[in-house]
Design a protein around this nucleic acid. Structure first.
Ligand SMILES: [Mn+2]
Ligand SMILES: [Mn+2]
Ligand SMILES: [Zn+2]
Ligand SMILES: [Zn+2]
Lengths: 166, 166
DNA sequence: GGCCGAAATGATACTTTGTTGCAAAAACCC
DNA sequence: GGGTTTTTGCAACAAAGTATCATTTCGGCC
């Protein structure tokens, strides 16, 4: 099953129009507004396609593959070509609005912004992803790369396992 | 260019039969001997295919894709099917003899064994990979996942950037 | 408003990476 | 040697990502 379909099914079964869904969608609204602001500040354009991809990532709150996104953005018919999705994702990642989860071949919206080191705890059971940005990890890592005279560019810190619920 | 071909070309040009190549191949010999011991201890078999894959990873000392390995293992003709390579890699990873670099879609031999937390510094310029197993990182990470009541399984800690040489 | 260069999107084909399912062979155990 | 488990072979397939070039849209400028 595609990731998005799997998520929708779970969500309908387990929650329906649950209370916290409203809180979540409000969160997503705020995040989107802030994303607009960030793009304005960076002098780049959050075009309709890019915005829709970001909206979908925020709404789902789970890692989605590029092809999942293509499907999600074309419920009627006429789906976007893969390259279009990849270009939007590249943009969002450059602007710090999304992350690539390399271990999952998937992408997820940024929920805590303005951190140089982000790690993800990925539940293998329920698919939930917990983005953490602890200062302790940042400083530990900074010390290590400095000791090796390594100049870091991108970081992929992903830990799979079971979350507290599972 | 395939990763293995690129590496070979670089290696021939920059070093030829250089002095430390002997030291490296001795290291690889020892690592292989130890791998045999580990498999015996685990009660699993380091079959010829698995051994050849591991040998190639040790000899190259760089991340190689599954298809690079298939090519490397069939210089004459008759290359192994992808699934055969993937099965060997799965085995080696299970036994802790190799790692998957998810951010590179590639695999690399384990050089420091018996560490629960391994991070890789991956140079985007020369392709060199530095495996580090610092206690500081292990304990920082252990604290974080414990705080989230997360039970970790696999860890993908990969940092791309420029190494001290580049 | 019309024009221009730059940025973004569309269309199409293609490459690379990884998987499924089942059959044959080899190793292990007794 | 016979039965079982493990490993490998084979073929087709699916998923993920990229290359190339044409077309459209946008932003600034006159
Ligand atoms: Mn919910
Ligand atoms: Mn050398
Ligand atoms: Zn879970
Ligand atoms: Zn380098």
């Amino acid at each position: 099953m595609a990731r998005l379909a799997a998520y929708k099914q779970h969500h309908e079964q387990s929650e329906g129009a649950c209370a916290h869904a409203i809180g979540q969608s409000e969160k997503a609204e705020r995040a989107l507004a802030q994303s607009e602001a960030i793009c304005r500040a960076h002098g780049v354009r959050l075009t309709p396609i890019r915005r829709k991809v970001l909206e979908t990532l925020y709404a789902t709150r789970r890692p989605l593959g590029a092809y999942d996104l293509a499907e999600a953005l074309a419920p009627d018919g006429r789906r976007l070509a893969p390259v279009t999705i990849y270009r939007a994702l590249e943009f969002l990642i450059e602007q710090g609005l999304a992350h690539r989860l390399a271990s999952q071949n998937a992408y997820i919206a940024t929920f805590h912004d303005d951190h140089e080191t982000t790690a993800f705890l990925i539940c293998e059971e329920c698919g939930d992803v917990n983005e953490i940005n602890p200062d302790a990890l940042s400083s530990t890592l900074a010390g290590l790369v400095q000791a090796e005279a390594f100049r870091p560019h991108a970081r992929f810190l992903e830990i799979t396992g079971k979350c507290s619920q599972c």
